[in-house]
Computed example of a mutant assay.
Amino acid sequence: MEIRHLRLIKAIVEEGSITKAIDKLYLTQSALSHQLKEAEYQLGTKIFLRNHKKLVLTKAGEKLYQTANEILAKLSDTEKEIKQLIFGEIGEIRISTECYSSYHWLPSVLKQFHLLYPNIELQIVMEATHYPLQKLQENVIDIAITSDPVKDENIKYLELFQDEMLMVVSENHHWVDKKFVVAEDFVNEHLLIHSLPIETVTVHQFLLAPANIKPKKITALPLTEASIEMVKADMGIMAMAKWALQPYLKNNSIKAIKIGKNGLKRKHYIAIMNNKTYPEYFNHFISFLQTEINLQWNI
């Protein structure tokens, strides 16, 4: 009895017919029939019986199918272990962040990590951006990057970095000479945000909502470059992280202003499930993320 015979029996049972098993195993019907007869000859008994045009396992076939599952699963595990010994760890990390601007630095960090661990697939799950903690708990992602931690005993938070949010205005805006702005300054302004809901926007959470202040107009504009152009034209204001804003400040047509007398600073965290056992490469990735962001970006 050979491995190909075990794969054949498993495919026929799980696909439900010889026709479907042919497609799965990439065999011709004559080749499949030959292999099945060969296996039955070696065992000295029938493996399948025909019942109303359906193939049904015999008692011997049932025992063989059980053995096929065990042996093929063990073989698959062994192949993975050997590949790990030769090529290093193999696995997947699904990651998302609640802040779209974070995607400016995240791909670069992931690329550096992939050079060290080429067999770890790193997947950015964009659709989890608005609700990363919820998607973490639903097992849609493995790691969430958030600046808005929620107390939950099932979630573990590891500090990643701290940044400062600044307001961006045109050089002609009436705020341009202010050292800082407060909530009341927003009453007659057109606030550009990256996406709704407004409750997830940092300047709303930590400045406007506590003061019960609403800007005159709020527009969601998902493209940072488009928002910057709106600001340049004095058609709105926007909040951006200081590190993400630096490249745009080279152009004197926009200015950055502190939010609040002491500035609006926020901490970002890596969130993982507290009750979940992660492979060792997850710990390597988290350490790498913390080190690289603080050293290379100096956020």
Rank of each mutant, 00 (worst) to 15 (best):
W105Q: 04
G61E: 00
A21H: 05
T146P: 01
T291G: 13
K111L: 14
T19V: 09
K216W: 14
D77V: 10
R4W: 06
P215E: 03
T129A: 13
D163M: 03
R94N: 08
K24V: 10
S227V: 07
L36N: 01
E98C: 05
T146H: 04
I218S: 01
G260E: 08
I213N: 04
E199V: 13
L249K: 00
I141D: 00
S33Y: 15
I141M: 06
V109L: 14
S76H: 14
Y157D: 03
L49E: 12
L192T: 04
R50W: 09
K83D: 12
V201L: 03
K242T: 04
N154D: 13
M235V: 07
P247G: 06
T58Q: 03
L115E: 15
E15V: 05
I293C: 03
H5E: 11
S227E: 08
N119Y: 08
P132K: 01
L64Q: 04
T67D: 07
T202E: 07
V231W: 00
Q35F: 06
Y41F: 13
H114L: 07
M238G: 01
L208W: 03
I198C: 09
P215Q: 06
K156E: 13
C99I: 12
T97R: 02
H174F: 10
E127Y: 09
T67H: 11
N172G: 04
T129L: 13
T200W: 02
Y269C: 04
Y117F: 14
D23M: 09
I90C: 05
E81P: 05
G260T: 06
L43V: 03
Q290R: 15
K46A: 13
N298H: 15
T19W: 07
L115T: 10
S253W: 02
N298I: 10
L27A: 06
Y100S: 15
S195Y: 15
A220Y: 12
L264H: 01
K54S: 11
V56F: 08
L221R: 14
L8V: 15
A244Q: 08
I259V: 14
